[in-house]
Structure formats: C-alpha cells, structure tokens
Computed example of a mutant assay.
Amino acid sequence: MSNALQGRVIAAFGRHYLAELPNGEILECVPRGKKSEVACGDTLEISRTGTGQGVIDRIAPRTSLLYRSDAWKQKIIAANVTQLIIVVASEPSFNDELLARCLLAAHDQKLEILIVLNKSDLPQVVAARAQLAPYTKIGYHVLELSAKQDVAPLLPYLQGHASVLVGQSGMGKSTLVNALIPAALAATREISTVLDSGKHTTTHARLYHLNPDSDLIDCPGVQLFGLHHLDFAALERNFPEFRPYLGQCRFANCSHSHEPDCAILTAAEQGKIDRRRLALFQQISAA
C-alpha cells in the first residue's frame, strides 16, 4: 500500500465514508464501483481526487468483520475490531434473542465479549439481573453500571481494544458514548458538516479514539440481527454450554429439538443447560 494514501474509516454514511490518514487529515471517500463493502474500522488504499476527497482503490485484509445477514443481503457493522460490547438495560426490557444472536456473531469472529447492564440504578435491575443469570453462569462477564452516573467501571475493559458497541434502541447507548467521549457530539456535528448533512443520513457506524491504544465504534441501535451466514454446526458450537455434549446425540444430524437420546435435551432436563437458552437456540437454528 506504499504507492497510495492509507486511511482508516472512521464514519460511514451510505456509500460515503470518512477516512483518517496517519497525519490526522480526514478525507471524504467513495468507492469506484456501485457496490460498496467498506466497513467502519477498515484500512483503505485511497487515491486523492481533490481537496479533502478521495476514491477507494482497495480494502486491506481484515482481522475481523462483524456483520448481520438474511437470505438476500448482508449488513456490514464494523471491521478489525477485537471486542464486542453489548449494551442492555433494566428499562426498557431487552430482547434476549437479540443478545444471543449478537453473542453468536462475536464468537464467529473470535472477539472478546462484554455485556453491559445499563441503568443499574433503577429498581428493575433485579429482573434484568435475573434475565442475565444464565449468561453469567456459563462464563459471560456482565458489567453493571449507570451511564448517567459513572462510566469509569467500563474504562479498564476498553483499554487496548478496538471495541464495537451494539444494542437495541432505548438501552442508553448514546448516553454511554457521550459520557465516555465528551467530544462525541461535536465530532458528530463535524462529520455531518463534512458530508453535507441531509444528503447522507444512513450512518452505519462511527469510530472514536479513546486514547492512542483504544478505539470505540458506535453503531446505530439494532432490533434484528440475522445470522444467515452461520450454518447449524457454527450455531451449536458457539453456544458454549453445548460444547461438552456435542457428538453425544444418537443421531449425527440431531436438531436438539425433539429427537430421542439427544444429549443437549437430556442436559437441559437435568438442569445442566438453561431451558431458555435451549429455546433460543431452537428459535435461531430454525429461522
């Protein structure tokens, strides 16, 4: 990539991207063709086309790619991240199927995982904590905090990582970002000005620098997280509590839903696998 400019995507608006060069200069970039597969966090090879503008020649090889998909298309979320932080809240109640789907996508890309339970100062935290109990039992780390009061407990988990923040609308994710990065609102306004706000309103993700070693990518709220790109074997393998029982069912093609002598169903009956987690697997794998 020595014969061209190299930049990192820090914001995505439709087919328009902002790429940050090593010297801190920001270029507004567009792909050469109609199809675009650029993600926030990507490293690009760019040719300058004018003042503050460039065209994307190539996407550098990625270390990870977080995306969701259905039978017809895929939605790229972020590239080259090392950690997925899923934000849920005590109020409004969160969708545990969405949580399970996000976890599966993170496992597929071998990302570190942290679940943040926001609004922990509210009385409803007791119910939310109980809803997350099956996750803590199988080894997921859940960090409770109130973004409006103190986000300091989250800082050690961000250090040294390129983290991507996801969550459904209403979980307080924006409050969390603004508390972590006080300049985030100003940065958003600046990005909108550069891209002529109103023309490019579909924002896929935005990258913020926490310090020289740590970055945070914020994504719009998600209500659905398709996993059409993951096959059945990947789904069952990425339910951590299933792993001790895989290969022990009577039938090699066991769906873990109704078959006799299913090791997964037996483990659930014995209380070794949470029944709600099993139901989530059956919902996701049957979709």
Results as ranks from 00 to 15, higher is better:
residue 261 D to S: 07
residue 6 Q to V: 09
residue 115 I to G: 04
residue 205 A to Y: 02
residue 25 E to C: 02
residue 264 I to H: 08
residue 98 L to T: 11
residue 268 A to D: 00
residue 42 D to I: 00
residue 126 V to N: 08
residue 172 G to R: 03
residue 235 L to K: 13
residue 212 P to D: 01
residue 220 P to A: 14
residue 69 S to N: 05
residue 221 G to M: 12
residue 54 G to A: 12
residue 171 M to L: 10
residue 247 G to A: 10
residue 208 Y to E: 05
residue 265 L to G: 01
residue 285 S to Q: 09
residue 195 L to S: 07
residue 198 G to H: 05
residue 159 Q to P: 00
residue 22 P to W: 08
residue 254 C to L: 05
residue 241 E to F: 03
residue 116 V to N: 05
residue 111 L to S: 12
residue 81 V to R: 02
residue 224 L to K: 15
residue 44 L to K: 00
residue 204 H to K: 12
residue 228 H to T: 08
residue 146 S to W: 04
residue 265 L to H: 05
residue 73 K to W: 05
residue 245 Y to C: 02
residue 210 L to Q: 10
residue 236 E to L: 01
residue 71 A to Q: 14
residue 156 P to G: 03
residue 27 L to C: 07
residue 81 V to S: 00
residue 139 G to R: 12
residue 84 L to W: 05
residue 218 D to K: 13
residue 272 K to N: 11
residue 280 L to E: 04
residue 169 S to K: 09
residue 62 R to S: 05
residue 283 Q to Y: 10
residue 282 Q to Y: 13
residue 74 Q to V: 04
residue 190 E to M: 09
residue 148 K to R: 14
residue 49 T to M: 13
residue 226 G to S: 13
residue 119 K to A: 02
residue 13 F to Q: 10
residue 199 K to H: 14
residue 99 L to H: 06
residue 93 S to M: 10
residue 227 L to T: 08
residue 201 T to R: 14
residue 164 V to L: 11
residue 66 L to W: 10
residue 136 T to F: 01
residue 263 A to Y: 09
residue 253 N to R: 07
residue 178 N to M: 05
residue 49 T to I: 11
residue 286 A to R: 13
residue 6 Q to A: 07
residue 181 I to P: 01
residue 69 S to T: 15
residue 9 V to C: 04
residue 246 L to Y: 06
residue 150 D to Q: 11
residue 4 A to G: 08
residue 250 R to Y: 03
residue 34 K to R: 15
residue 50 G to F: 06
residue 144 E to H: 04
residue 67 Y to N: 04
residue 75 K to L: 10
residue 168 Q to S: 14
residue 101 R to S: 06
residue 134 P to S: 06
residue 49 T to Q: 13
residue 177 V to D: 03
residue 32 R to I: 12
residue 218 D to M: 11
residue 175 T to R: 03
residue 280 L to G: 00
residue 131 Q to R: 15
residue 175 T to M: 08
residue 3 N to M: 04
residue 4 A to Q: 10
residue 141 H to T: 15
residue 140 Y to A: 10
residue 129 R to E: 15
residue 166 V to C: 15
residue 244 P to L: 02
residue 283 Q to G: 00
residue 31 P to A: 11
residue 121 D to E: 14
residue 253 N to P: 00
residue 207 L to N: 08
residue 134 P to W: 11
residue 282 Q to V: 08
residue 11 A to D: 09
residue 42 D to N: 07
residue 200 H to C: 03
residue 120 S to P: 01
residue 88 V to S: 02
residue 202 T to N: 13
residue 260 P to S: 04
residue 250 R to D: 00
residue 160 G to E: 02
residue 221 G to D: 12
residue 226 G to M: 08
residue 133 A to N: 11
residue 124 Q to E: 15
residue 174 S to A: 12
residue 187 A to Q: 15
residue 180 L to Q: 06
residue 73 K to I: 11
residue 135 Y to D: 05
residue 229 H to E: 10
residue 28 E to N: 06
residue 140 Y to M: 12
residue 168 Q to K: 11
residue 8 R to W: 02
residue 25 E to L: 07
residue 84 L to I: 13
residue 13 F to R: 14
residue 137 K to G: 08
residue 193 T to M: 03
residue 178 N to P: 07
residue 52 G to T: 06
residue 10 I to Y: 04
residue 127 A to S: 11
residue 214 S to C: 12
residue 229 H to C: 03
residue 136 T to D: 08
residue 77 I to L: 14
residue 283 Q to C: 03
residue 166 V to N: 08
residue 233 A to V: 03
residue 260 P to N: 02
residue 120 S to V: 01
residue 165 L to N: 10
residue 27 L to P: 07
